[in-house]
Design a protein around this nucleic acid. Structure first.
Lengths: 190, 190
DNA sequence: GAGCGCCGGAACGCAACCGTTGCGTCCTGG
DNA sequence: CCAGGACGCAACGGTTGCGTTCCGGCGCTC
């Protein structure tokens, strides 16, 4: 019976409020104001702030990050980095994600939701790419997939969400070359 | 004239409150309660919440991260990663840093302070380590210091502050080996 | 031992937000 | 045409926090 356009307006308002003030300062009243909606309409849909935010955020997060499969590890890597960098450069995402990550450190429910919505998927993507590369002989058999994921996503996240230095195509190419070098068979010291 | 022990108690309380509830929810009243101090004592020292937090946090941040100089790039790298990983595993730091990073995305004053207190110093450390390595011939001459910093700190930050997966010595060694591989002269594709 | 300044504590007026309720309107299906 | 439900709006009492003010007490210094 709930009107869909209203629900959509609320979802939208929550995302924007989250980006602007963060979870800690998010208020139901501000969401209602922003959505042009009565508080009643919100409480009719969710029982409190936490539940509302979690439901909305995971709904958004679930439709993202496709699985690259270009036929070569170098290609997969470049594509993945391109996608992730685009996502992290998105105005709203780049505000919300670090905020919720920080919040997750003190709220187990947020942590769990984020884990399910982001980490798990990213890990699966990483493992698949690395697994394919190993099968093709592009990476050594013992390659640590966890380490690979950290190497692929860590620098991007650091750069875009933490130090917030702009990124260009050159940088992205250098980065993927470097990561490629990092994961290849270790060479003797000289 | 202000009593030093009281100032110290307030500083301490602010750090702990920041870790527990984050900047967004930090309240002067809670800080006073926690420090066992009247609000008056706080307002006598700082004029508002933002100024207080910035002054205290930068004071703490300024005394950290020594400059490694072990004589070899591999040694410097391992030492730096060890220090940073210890710092990021510190209970309070690992809560406060991501929180302020997220807050910095929407508050320019916080961003500026963090930039000065953390980024600038880290960048200097990275540049020095890379510069020394290039002089010794351990890294190619054109090595991009920015990229190197991202590769060194990004995965650690990602792992410890974002995905919050525990780290052991083995992982740290694998990571530094990988970063070493990433920064060496690029090899031809096969 | 008088005075000064910091101290904690209590209370102030003001604002924001919580979650709930009641009102009158609008839309829809029977 | 009518019942019912979702809507917005406004108001409720209660809580929390702001930044300020005033108080009495305590420990300096002169």
């Amino acid at each position: 019976m709930l009107r869909g356009d209203i629900t959509a307006a609320i979802r939208n308002a929550v995302m924007n409020e989250l980006a602007e003030v963060g979870y800690g300062r998010l208020s139901i009243e501000a969401v209602a104001r922003r959505a042009g909606v009565g508080k009643t309409a919100i409480y009719r849909r969710w029982s409190n702030k936490l539940e509302m935010v979690l439901e909305i955020v995971s709904a958004v997060a679930e439709r993202s990050v496709p699985m690259p499969d270009t036929g070569s590890f170098a290609g997969d890597l470049q594509l993945l980095m391109f996608i992730v960098s685009k996502a992290l450069q998105h105005q709203i995402a780049s505000q919300i994600i670090p905020d919720l990550m920080a919040e997750a450190a003190r709220n187990p429910k947020i942590a769990e939701t984020l884990q399910r919505a982001l980490r798990t998927h990213q890990q699966a993507v990483g493992e698949k790419i690395v697994g394919q590369a190993v099968e093709r002989g592009e990476l050594p058999a013992g390659t640590n997939a966890d380490l690979a994921v950290d190497l692929m996503l860590g620098p991007l996240y650091w750069r875009l969400a933490v130090s917030r230095t702009p990124i260009d195509d050159d940088y992205l190419e250098n980065l993927s070359t470097a990561v490629l070098g990092a994961l290849r068979e270790p060479r003797p010291a000289h």
